[in-house]
Write a protein that binds this DNA or RNA. Structure first.
Length: 651
RNA sequence: GGCCCCGUAGCUCAGUUGGAUAGAGCGACGGUUUCCUAAACCGUAGGCCACAGGUUCGAAUCCUGUCGGGGUCGCCA
């Protein structure tokens, strides 16, 4: 379905061309210049700067000339603003919006998209930040489906790699054999085992004192230099440097912004020395444990039956736990696979790279011969002890997926910090001669801050959902609107909806900081806000006996109604754009606009009785308004379902 | 240091290919419940769009530089 607004834009462009005596061939270019302006400037607008230049005529003159021929238009300086006929607008939008396929199209018909999303690591917990890939990927999938694509959603588990060795070897030390199938227990074990083998962390601590001393020396020198600067500019520069160093040192020491970072330094250095000493003595043990984990993984790669059996068991447990959370969020996959699917073809994959574009040994590791940008690290296919790395498995997976699904587009919904990995993956596939590499895209998203593992502040996704549902329950139990029989279902819808919608509200590329009060916010522009408008629409429809089959939509003359209809009209375009840009937030924002206009409209009816939907003694008007309310209900439900958020009928 | 992303109201963020007086939500202040759901609505205050140049009839948007923040940079994924 073409966007309903498009039709009016096209028409406007045609009228403008006609009014200036331009040939039809100019219409597409003019159409490209038509905008939806701010509300006070009408519904459609064009500025004549470009055409002015093209025709060598003053824009003001063109605007004035066009206004004479284009219906419902006013020239304002170099702009021409037009108003869409109210009745035509209503009768174009409302019937379309009342249909369940509102916003759908056939743009992607006959094409297949493979979406790699969620993809948690087995053995590690499903933490809150996993919501990003999961929810964005699922929404991008639904968006593609709504645009006619065949969608293959793959949960590509990180089920192959050293981290699994950590879990398995760690279980021998900390595991309770009775709890082998307890996912939460496995996570505890993994966290401990990971700490035990934290070679990098220990090395950093060992280097701590010397780095600290270097920093202190640098700072002392900087302070000296500050006094001997030749001119003002130089002084400023050196002051900056000092400030930077001070900030760094304060950061290391965990001091407040106004304290002198050199104060009480000796003690701190002593602490660091002691810490380094402890790290030095702990290192051999950590290295041993790290090596143990590596060996376990090597055994897996060599298909050791005992190791494989253990791996299989832990894997099943993890997947069952993930599935429970996915079910709560209404997330489905076409396939749950993992890196382990490609163990059999890894050798062949490496061989294939060796042929084209070629490989070489470097410090014992196998790297691909790929043109590197300056400063770019090489692509490692195998470690020095012969185990594969994830890029090798990704190469195998990409080839396999193309063979299986013949995709026209392959998306990887993975955090921004892996941008380099995907850049290299796609480039390498291209260098291997795979044409489909050009159809692959990394759909990157920003980080969730404020829950770093180092501070031990891992927040589980499930835990956040629980808290949110609990809050919804508290509010709902105080209300007498909700049928007790549907209470559980409703609070689940609202609680989870708030969390999911909250994540999809921001542009996917922006980072955000986890804050309980924000994740659990139900006020303002949130999921519950949209759900609330939807529930009110349902309630009014019920009271009015449903939407009538026919109505005279020309009766919808209120400004609130016009604003609302325009918000509905923007929905299909938002869905289309969201699909093209892999940006669910476009839909989120379009829905908020509809929900807001709806809330204003309904509330206006409380202040002024003649604006009520259910009008006394005017069945024709009531019929028209009920159809509009039904269009709202339907659009909000449709939009929320695209985002994976439930739309309760009452709340 | 190299490469990538970012800097918009007190806070969190929109502003899609350059267009009119830069918009929301939260918070602040002031109103609205005999009114179809107050998880709401209406209003007020709040901005050198980091800074400096440049391109353009026109720049929050494009280019260059500076400052500030984040990410990433060989055997983890």
């Amino acid at each position: 379905m073409a966007s309903p607004l498009d039709k009016f834009k096209q028409e406007f462009a045609k009228q403008v061309a006609g009014s200036l005596g331009l040939p039809d061939s100019e219409i597409p270019s003019i159409y490209g210049q038509v905008r939806v302006p701010e509300r006070e400037h009408g519904d459609l607008s064009i500025s004549f700067f470009q055409l002015g230049k093209q025709l060598s005529r003053p824009p003001l003159e063109l605007a004035a000339q066009a206004a004479k021929k284009v219906p419902n238009s006013t020239p304002v300086g170099p702009h021409l603003n037009a108003t869409i006929d109210r009745t035509r607008l209503a009768s174009e939008i409302i019937p379309a919006a009342r249909n369940a396929d509102f916003g759908d199209s056939q743009d992607g018909e006959g094409r297949t998209v493979v979406i790699d999303f969620s993809s948690p690591n087995i053995a590690k917990p499903l933490a809150f930040h996993h919501i990003r890939s999961t929810v964005i990927g699922a929404a991008v999938g639904r968006l593609h489906r709504s645009q006619g694509w065949r969608v293959v959603g793959i949960n590509y588990l990180g089920d192959w790699g050293k981290q699994f060795g950590l879990l398995a070897t760690g279980f021998r030390r900390y595991g309770d054999p009775a709890k082998r199938a307890d996912a939460k227990h496995l996570i505890e074990v993994y966290v401990k085992a990971n700490q035990d083998a934290d070679v990098e962390g220990l090395r950093a601590k060992m280097n701590g004192p010397s780095e600290l001393r270097a920093l202190v020396t640098e700072l002392e020198t900087a302070r000296q230099l500050e006094k001997t600067a030749a001119d003002d500019k130089e002084t400023k520069k050196r002051e900056k440097k000092t400030k930077q160093l001070e900030k760094k040192l304060r950061g290391l020491r965990g001091l407040t912004d106004d304290s002198d970072p050199l104060e009480g330094l000796l003690e701190f250095i002593e602490e660091k020395d002691a810490e380094a000493e402890r790290a030095t003595s702990a290192l051999p043990a950590a290295e041993a444990k790290d090596q143990e984990a590596r060996l376990f993984f090597k055994k897996l790669e060599e298909k050791d039956p005992v190791a494989l059996a253990e791996w299989r068991e832990f894997r099943e447990t993890s997947i069952a736990e993930f599935q429970r959370v996915y079910r709560r969020m209404g997330i489905e996959f076409t396939a749950i696979e993992g890196e382990s699917f490609y163990t059999d073809v890894l050798e062949a994959t490496v061989a294939r790279v060796s042929e084209k574009p070629g490989t070489e040994r470097d410090q014992g590791a196998l790297i691909a011969k790929l043109e590197q940008k300056p400063g770019e690290p090489p692509v490692l296919l195998q470690t020095k002890d012969g185990t594969t790395l994830y890029i090798t498995r990704d190469i195998a997976a990409a080839i396999d997926r193309h063979e299986r699904f013949q995709f026209n587009r392959a998306l990887y919904v993975v955090a921004q910090d892996q941008a380099l990995h995907f850049q290299q993956l796609f480039r390498l596939l291209g260098a291997m001669g795979f044409d489909f590499a050009k159809d692959m895209q990394h759909v990157a998203f920003g980080r969730v801050h404020g829950m770093s593992t180092r501070r031990g502040s891992v927040i589980f996704l499930d835990e956040v959902l629980d808290e949110s549902v609990a809050k919804a329950r508290e509010i709902c139990e105080a209300s007498d609107r909700i049928d007790r029989a549907h209470l559980d279902e409703t609070v689940e819808a609202i609680g989870i909806g708030a969390v999911v919608f909250g994540d999809l509200k921001n542009l996917r590329t922006s980072d955000y900081t986890f804050k309980w009060e924000e994740v659990l916010n139900f006020e303002g522009f949130t999921g519950p806000y949209v759900q609330f408008s939807h529930a009110r629409a349902c309630s009014i429809l019920e009271k009015g006996g449903g939407a009538p089959g026919s109505a005279d939509l020309s009766l919808l003359a209120l400004p609130e109604e016009r604003d609302l209809i325009l918000a509905l009209a923007a929905f299909p375009g938002a869905v289309k754009d969201a699909c093209e840009a892999f940006e669910p937030s476009y839909v989120t924002r379009a829905l908020l606009e509809v929900a807001q206009r709806t809330a204003s409209y309904f509330t206006a009816g409380n202040r002024e009785r003649e604006k009520r939907i259910l009008v006394d003694g005017n069945p024709a008007l009531q019929a028209a308004r009920l159809q509009l309310v039904d269009a709202v209900r339907c659009t909000l439900a449709k939009g929320l379902s695209l985002l994976g958020v439930a739309a309760p009928k009452a709340m």
